[in-house]
Design a protein around this nucleic acid. Structure first.
Length: 210
DNA sequence: CACTCGATGTTCT
DNA sequence: GAACATCGAGTGG
């Protein structure tokens, strides 16, 4: 399980005709490919308290400086710096009381990342329930802040190397199904809210919202 | 240093 | 569907 990780997910990329509403330029972006390819793979965090993980069922792509929704659209800063680094590292940022986990995708110098928005709970469910303070599986990891809390992912894992650190992407699970592309969540209208860069399994009950 | 604002979640009505 | 809790980063003095 430990050997699969990032390169495994990247190698599963296939261009799908379902993206025909995207501008042509976005087809060329590896991050869009990664956002789709990561669906169905398992995300695992091995912490001293125990191992937790789930199947990635919802992602969002954030595309460099041309994307007004991307943190890097304002240029390189202390916060978004990890996005400029080489791919395969974590970009974790805080919003309100939550941590949001991104996987850096593009080559060094190109600030792109995939936000992990929801997991289908698989491993360490009891520990995740304990961390979240609730029992219902549907609510454990159905949001970017929820899943980091469930997995015990904090800002301490910012810049973590996903091929070395105890946080990693495993092999694809058997579950799959049709993928839906919609607009991203939580962006103000002028921040690229109209771009269909959110992907999720159409019939999966663990996505953050319909 | 003081202010503003979220790629959010929970708890209300 | 709306209010709000809450904190690190960004921005402008």
């Amino acid at each position: 399980m430990r050997g699969a990780k990032w390169s495994n997910a990247m190698s599963h990329f296939r261009i799908s005709g379902a993206d025909s509403s995207l501008p042509r330029s976005y087809y060329l972006k590896a991050t869009v490919d990664a956002a789709r390819a990561l669906l169905g793979h398992i995300l695992v965090h091995e912490s001293p308290e125990g191992t937790t993980g789930g199947i990635i069922v919802e992602t969002e792509a954030y595309l460099s400086q041309d994307d007004p929704g991307c943190h890097a659209s304002i240029g390189r800063t202390r916060r978004n710096d990890p996005m400029f680094g080489p791919p395969g590292y974590a970009y974790v940022y805080g919003i309100h009381r939550c941590a949001c986990l991104n996987l850096v995708t593009a080559p060094e110098g190109v600030p792109e990342a995939v936000l992990i928005r929801a997991l289908e709970p698989v491993t360490g469910i009891e520990l995740m329930q304990q961390r979240r303070g609730l029992l219902r599986l549907k609510d454990l990891c159905s949001g970017p802040g929820k899943l980091t809390q469930a997995l015990g992912v904090t800002l301490a894992l910012n810049r973590a190397d996903l091929t070395v650190q105890p946080l990693y992407v495993g092999a694809a699970a058997v579950t799959a199904g049709p993928v839906v592309a919609t607009t991203r969540i939580g962006l103000r209208p002028e921040k690229g809210a109209d771009l269909p860069l959110r992907y999720y399994f159409a019939d999966n009950p663990y996505v953050s919202r319909r």
